[in-house]
Nucleic acid binder design. Structure first.
Length: 273
DNA sequence: ACTTCGACCTGTTGGC
DNA sequence: TGCCAACAGGTCGAAG
């Protein structure tokens, strides 16, 4: 479900409701996510309050004074703010209850997501310590990508979807960014010029900022912490449009498989060079 | 040190 | 209508 803009939207949405509020209880209905949820989480979290909320890539970091809750939404996960008393959804595995009114509800049908606890600096956690730069920060530059790509023979699409290269770019935004930068998704990362990487970094930043502004992309069932759908799906130019016509040149958009993911592109605008 | 592929899950859709 | 295969916003870790 969520790529960077969706996770960012969720972080912003939950912060208004839960920041500095005291956790009164934690209910776990199913421990089995990608990794088991720590059994002692209710005891550890109860009585604490969330001091800050951060995002690193697609990870949500809820920091308390004694440690940090690391949340990943996987493919189908979602976080919602609901009244404490509510009808539990079918896949609502965890509720973190704040005071006597609100609950932060983790719902994840496929259970590819994760909820972990660390008392260390979360950025040093095994899952986070090797992540690449944030695409919206200054250190995500064309020169960085160009240098990093020198030893990479993989197609550019897989290169930019690799979280060790850059975080937050999933299948939707990888397709869109490559279209915007007129790069063929199959082209080997190490054959792309610095100039082309300049266009790619610029377009990627624009795209992600624009998507955040629109509350993310709702293809099927993504919604934010208040249950609102995003609207960026109306701005997609290639993702989900295979067989339809390119908005620039009217060529029929092609669809191939790359690293087991659907890859849509315009064979005319995105020529290998 | 690289890339590729299976695995983890449930739900939905489209073809026969 | 039913059944089955393919696919879906992610990514780790084993195998090559």
């Amino acid at each position: 479900m969520p790529e960077l803009p969706e996770v960012e939207t969720i972080c912003r949405g939950i912060s208004q409701s839960i920041l500095k509020r005291k956790i009164s209880s934690v209910v776990i209905r199913n421990h089995k996510l990608r990794w088991p949820i720590p059994k002692n989480l209710p005891q550890v979290l109860s009585g604490q309050s969330i001091q800050t909320i951060k995002r690193r890539g697609k990870y949500i970091l809820l920091e308390t004074k004694i440690g940090t809750l690391i949340i990943h939404l996987g493919m189908s996960g979602n976080l919602r703010i609901k009244p404490k008393e509510h009808v539990f959804g079918k896949h609502e595995h965890v509720n973190i209850v704040f005071g006597d009114k609100l609950a932060l509800c983790y719902n994840d049908p496929r259970r590819f997501g994760a909820i972990l606890w660390t008392i260390k600096n979360p950025l040093e956690h095994a899952l986070l310590k090797n992540l690449g730069p944030e695409p919206l920060e200054r250190n995500f530059t064309a020169q960085y990508l160009f240098d990093r790509a020198k030893r990479c023979h993989a197609p550019i699409k897989q290169f930019i979807m690799n979280s060790k290269v850059v975080v937050g770019v999933g299948n939707i935004y990888a397709n869109e960014a490559l279209f915007a930068a007129k790069i063929n998704p199959v082209q080997k990362a190490n054959t792309i010029t610095l100039k082309r990487y300049q266009l790619l970094t610029k377009k990627t930043k624009e795209l992600l900022r624009y998507a955040i502004k629109h509350g993310g992309t709702t293809i099927k069932d993504y919604s934010d912490s208040q249950g609102r759908k995003g609207s960026f799906q109306n701005k997609l130019r290639v993702y989900g449009r295979e067989g339809q016509f390119c908005i620039n040149c009217k060529t029929k958009l092609a669809c191939i498989r790359l690293g087991q993911r659907s890859t849509v592109f315009c064979p005319h605008c995105q020529i290998e060079s």
